[in-house]
Design a protein around this nucleic acid. Structure first.
Length: 908
RNA sequence: GCCCGCAUAGCUCAAUAGCAGAGUCGCCGACCGAUAAUCGGCAGACCGGGGUGCAAAUCCCCGUGUGGGCACCA
């Protein structure tokens, strides 16, 4: 074919078009790690202002799934971008190691283990998953001090937890009390609010009569209560009414017999509907206050229940007469305390009745199984006015999935009331992103009851409490401090391994004192990371600049950290809190962490997708979405993103390839820059500004979309396409060719670093071809360069693109008609309104190039328009443009003038 | 039951109250000198209903959908 093909300067690079991320990324990781990239970055920013993102510890259990990956990648965006913005941004990853989920696994796999053995195996289990997750996090390209993470099972960490506990005690924040707590019968321990999940459950609701035995109505009428937990009736000690609600003494016909019942007037109809009772007459109306103090006989036990007034009684459901079992409910408990009722809770750890229930036939029976028996008993005693199925959301243990019960047990608590005010003030001093996070946490802080911090489990930090001969606890800061010292040295296993005598001796208590095996709520562990990590690690500081977790941590870690920090420091441990939503499968609209349940087969582990698409694709996905909402995820999204990735990668590649013969040492004169060069550099400044601001404000999707747009439209479709001709066909040292290479170098110099926090691997790879030797992650972000800012050029280009669109349509028309093949065969007449003339005239020499046309004629008219015809000019064999002068040269009759010059220059 | 987010093209995202933009997908074509690439054309959207404004995707109200929180419930 063409004899001139070899004279063309085609792009040339070794930067591969095909990414091969799955293979290339691990190689790059090995290099980063062998070169100590993280340490190098820290060293390079040694004197820089500090920016601390404190890692919330994931639970050391299971593989890294897409949600965990999202979180860690976002954190890595922050750390990398802050580093490149000139901060020292250390990242110390951590793991939450104690707790029920792990102990559960261990105990399940082999029963009958000693506490020490449970702990040994739990630690082994936790460490195994720490290693697994660490490998997976690293594989995602997340940089940090992976060799020195913080673990809540480290003796030093545990000692700090104990010391902090000692300070809580010293501040008078800790008390022990027997009161109802959320109790998991499956896991046999108390639970925190955050450890229960609400599920729909259908319970049996019963209407139960309590004959009045005092007052005017004694022997005449019965109080009727409503309960969804008949099994708590043996613990009934009172009935609550609302003092200001109106109650009715109503004569009804029920099960063929007439009786008088007392209930809230407003609920009589509902009662009749539910029980089939027929209302015969309302004999009397009275305020609840009139019932106060009267006695009613328990339906099947030989005792009476007193009627009290309480504000929590509502008229939503039931009868307005509320069954009160102080051992089985929060409100019940408080009312019971108020009136000095005993705390009856005749249920054991497994949720089975104890002898205290006074019903021998029920002892040992699981309470939820006992409901029917209790109902039968009520029936037998004639006290069951009716029953109905009642669907409601009911709390379940997050681990054993069993319904939880309220049960009174001796537990340790932290007095939240002493902290609430300071915590709320602290909330207001923090910047919450998105802003509604403030309300979320305010709500939880305002309403949370005292914090039950003791757990009847073995895999945790021991509760450092000794008991005297009466079984009363010794809560003494000094003793606790001594325990902490022992833990720091010997680890917390010593609590389980040494005897009481040995311990008593170690901490200097009188002999005869004993220990128990309660542990601390794991939320205390992780909630104290600001103390055990931020304050301990020399490279960190208190408070952190940022905590960044999923939105569910408002109730969890954000809150536990806030509370412990307010207790110790009076202030929150963070200046700013950023939250993200959950990963949602677009096909099922379900949380991906939940979608694995119920026969759903799609993989949810990050590793699966890393292996299939590469870590940079996951990172690109994270950057592309608005993470403050739920984050959509599906295989289709990844396919789309692969295309976006390819586009960005190929853009980098063509830029690199066009610089193959660029001589950095002789930059062009500024006046050599043509319009498109000035324009692309102007656009670059806009991109730099938007992206650095996007990183600054943690809106990474702005960065993604800006860069995507810049690569796909400004660079690939326009600048690279337009300058192709001059780069390939001009003589090597033509001023406009050098100007373009200069601009392209400028673009790469800024673009690759801007991309680096997101496409950590690809940016590094590209940077390696651009500037040998130094990691892109050690670079600083570019700053907008006022030299190249040029809003006029951007505006002018926008107008040219509108005209270009008209031209393309005109050309397309004759292409479709079969008159021409390539657009370069067209001759175009562009008609523009007079207002456009100055612009077009000023660019006269460049228009054909900008529009990528062989021949353009500009005319003036009313409205803009374009017509295209097949050009009569001959085609230059070398550059394929049709030029009039082709054929006029004797030496090179098939070339245009420019190409002849280039060829001649190349030969000489 | 109450409160708070969110809702733009098949998908992911834009847009100071001022012609609703991109990318990708789809269809058609070009090119065969970015070639498992690249370029062009076509097609495609403001959840519904009211209100305020010269002008509303944007502000207000109601509704629907969706996600979350609280309350109820033990």
């Amino acid at each position: 074919m063409s004899g001139y093909k070899h004279t063309i300067k085609l792009p040339k690079t070794d930067f591969p078009m095909k990414a091969g991320l799955a293979q290339r990324e691990p190689e790059m990781l090995r290099r980063w790690e062998s070169e100590g990239l993280y340490e190098k970055i820290q060293e390079a920013r040694r004197e820089a202002p500090l920016y601390v993102l404190h890692d919330g510890p994931p639970f050391a259990n299971g593989d890294v799934h897409m949600g965990t990956a999202l979180n860690k990648i976002l954190k890595d965006f922050v750390v990398k971008s802050r580093s490149m913005a000139g901060f020292r941004a250390p990242f110390i990853p951590g793991w939450d190691c104690h707790g029920l989920p792990i102990e559960f696994r261990v105990v399940k796999s082999s029963a009958g283990l000693t506490p020490a053995e449970v702990r040994r195996r739990s630690e082994e289990y936790a460490r195994k998953f720490i290693d697994i997750q660490r490998t997976q996090f690293r594989r995602l390209g997340v940089l940090g001090d992976w060799e020195n993470p913080y673990l809540t099972l480290d003796p030093g960490y545990e000692a700090d937890v104990i010391r902090s506990f000692g300070r809580f005690v010293e501040a008078g924040l800790v008390y022990r009390k027997k009161k109802p707590v959320l109790w998991s019968t499956g896991a046999q321990t108390a639970l925190a609010e955050a450890e229960v999940e609400y599920q729909e459950k259908t319970s049996v609701a019963a209407y139960v009569t309590f004959p009045l035995v005092s007052g005017d109505l004694a022997g005449e009428a019965s109080m009727v209560i409503w309960t969804t937990t008949p099994w708590t009736l043996p613990a009934n000690l009172a009935i609550a009414v609302h003092a200001r609600h109106t109650y009715a003494v109503v004569r009804v016909s029920l099960h063929g017999a007439e009786q008088r019942l007392v209930m809230a007037e407003a609920l009589v109809e509902g009662f009749c509907a539910a029980t089939g009772a027929e209302k015969l007459a309302v004999e009397k109306l009275l305020p609840g206050a009139d019932l106060e103090g009267h006695l009613a006989r328990h339906p099947f036990l030989d005792r009476t229940s007193t009627i009290y007034a309480a504000d929590f009684v509502t008229l939503d459901t039931g009868t307005g007469c509320v069954h009160i079992a102080p051992g089985h409910g929060e409100d019940d408990y408080r009312l019971g305390m108020e009136h000095n009722l005993p705390l009856l809770s005749p249920v054991d750890d497994k949720g089975c009745f104890t002898a205290e229930c006074e019903l021998p036939e029920f002892v040992g029976q699981y309470v939820f199984d006992a409901n029917e028996g209790i109902l039968a008993l009520l029936q037998e005693k004639g006290a069951l006015a009716g029953r109905e199925a009642y669907a409601h959301s009911y709390p379940h243990c997050w681990r054993s999935k069993t319904p939880v019960i309220f049960r009174a047990v001796e537990q340790f608590f932290i007095r939240i009331d002493s902290l609430r005010e300071a915590a709320l003030a602290g909330v207001d001093s923090v910047k919450w992103l998105p802003h509604w996070g403030r309300n979320r946490i305010r709500g939880t802080v305002e309403s949370r009851p005292d914090w039950c911090i003791s757990r009847q489990r073995t895999w945790g930090v021991p509760l450092p409490v000794f008991y005297d001969g009466n079984g009363d606890p010794v809560l003494d800061p000094e003793t606790i401090a001594k325990v902490a010292d022992v833990f720091a040295e010997r680890g917390t296993n010593s609590w389980f391994e040494l005897s009481d005598e040995e311990w008593v001796k170690l901490v200097g208590l009188p002999s005869g004192m004993t220990r128990r095996h309660d542990t601390l709520d794991v939320w205390i562990d992780s909630g104290l990371s600001h103390e055990a990590v931020l304050r301990r690690r020399p490279e960190l500081t208190f408070p952190a600049d940022l905590y960044l977790e999923a939105t569910d941590q408002h109730r969890g870690w954000f809150q536990s950290s806030l509370m412990t920090s307010v207790a110790l420091n009076k202030v929150p441990p963070y200046r700013e809190v950023l939250t993200h939503g959950f990963v949602v499968d677009t096909d099922t609209r379900k949380k991906i962490s939940k979608s694995a349940q119920g026969g759903y087969q799609k993989p949810t582990e990050a590793d699966h997708y890393v292996g299939k698409y590469g870590a940079d694709l996951l990172r690109l996905w994270v950057s592309s979405v608005n993470f403050t909402d739920d984050v959509p995820f599906s295989e289709e999204i990844f396919t789309r993103l692969s295309d976006a990735y390819r586009r960005i990668r190929n853009t980098l590649r063509i830029l690199l390839a066009n610089l193959h013969d660029y001589d950095v040492s002789s930059p062009p004169k500024e006046t050599d820059l043509t319009f498109v060069d000035r324009w692309i550099l102007a656009r670059l400044q806009e991109v730099v500004t938007t992206c650095t601001q996007g990183y600054e404000s943690l809106e990474f999707h702005r960065v993604y979309h800006t860069i995507n747009q810049f690569c796909a439209v400004d660079l690939s479709s326009l600048y690279v396409d337009i300058t192709k001709d001059r780069l390939y066909c001009d003589k090597g040292d033509s001023s406009r060719r050098r100007a373009t290479q200069f601009a392209m170098a400028k673009v790469l110099e800024a673009l690759i670093p801007l991309l680096a926090p997101i496409l950590a691997f690809t940016a590094e790879e590209a940077w390696g071809y651009f500037r040998k030797g130094v990691s892109v992650h050690l670079q600083l972000f570019p700053k907008p360069d006022p030299t190249w800012a040029n809003p006029d050029a951007v505006r002018e280009m926008d107008r040219l693109l509108e005209l270009r669109s008209l031209i393309s349509q005109a050309v397309e028309k004759i292409q479709k008609a079969g008159e021409i093949g390539s657009a370069l065969e067209a001759g175009v007449i562009l008609t523009v309104p007079p207002a456009d003339r100055p612009l077009l005239d000023s660019l006269r020499g460049e228009l054909e190039e900008v529009f990528i046309l062989s021949h353009l004629t500009v005319a003036t008219g009313e409205v803009a328009g374009a017509t295209a015809t097949k050009t009569s000019a001959a085609r230059c064999e070398r550059c394929w443009r049709h030029r009039d002068e082709v054929g006029s040269s004797a030496d090179h009759p098939t070339l245009c003038a420019r190409c002849e010059e280039a060829v001649v220059a190349g030969i000489s």
